[in-house]
């Protein structure tokens, strides 16, 4: 009799902070962060766009860095801190300044890119605040309009033509 090959799936235990709360889970090695967030943890605010790192709709923050969660191994968030769109506002009913600015600028149309956009803008604010930005361009701790456009290069939007999204980011820095 032919022996059937048994495929045992090895699970990996990970522990990380998700929107400020500790999460423990057991996942397959090949799970990407996007699937962990949407399918297992049921946080649907992060959008699956192209699934190949081209559109930025799935952008989340891992230790304050904006990453494409579709191309990020979930095992690598072990011990780290992940922030998704659900964790941007602090839950007291008020919007986060990034969201507030997007709304006020008229930067949201169909909304599919908006979660990723908001996370990228949030990352830009914190990277500029902490000096983690391109040296010497504006000579300041805030980006020029051109630098904002460059920073948002990885987030595609079909509706807005980006103008109002860039406006919304610019307003955050001018305040």
């Amino acid at each position: 009799m032919k022996k059937e090959k048994i495929n045992k799936v090895i699970k990996h235990d990970i522990s990380f902070k998700l929107n400020g709360k500790k999460v423990d889970c057991s996942i397959k090695g090949s799970t990407v962060l996007l699937d962990l967030l949407r399918d297992d943890l049921e946080l649907k605010g992060t959008k699956a766009g192209c699934n190949e790192g081209e559109c930025g709709a799935c952008t989340v923050l891992v230790d304050d860095a904006p990453v494409n969660s579709c191309l990020y191994l979930a095992v690598n968030v072990n011990g780290k801190s992940v922030t998704t769109i659900e964790g941007l506002a602090n839950g007291d009913g008020e919007l986060h300044p990034v969201q507030e600015s997007l709304v006020k600028s008229g930067a949201v149309q169909c909304g599919f890119c908006t979660s990723g956009m908001a996370m990228a803008i949030k990352a830009m604010v914190s990277q500029y605040e902490s000096g983690q930005h391109v040296p010497g361009e504006s000579g300041n701790n805030f980006p020029s309009r051109e630098e904002i456009k460059k920073y948002l290069e990885g987030n595609l939007c079909r509706c807005t033509g980006y103008v109002k999204i860039v406006d919304s980011a610019e307003k955050l820095f001018s305040n």
């Binding site: 192209c50 190949e52 456009k149 290069e153 595609l156 079909r158 980006y162 103008v163 999204i165």
Partner: peptide, 14 residues
Amino acid sequence: SNFHNYKMLTAADI
């Protein structure tokens, strides 16, 4: 049939 080779403009192009 992907955003890698179907080239939508980005914010940097506006």
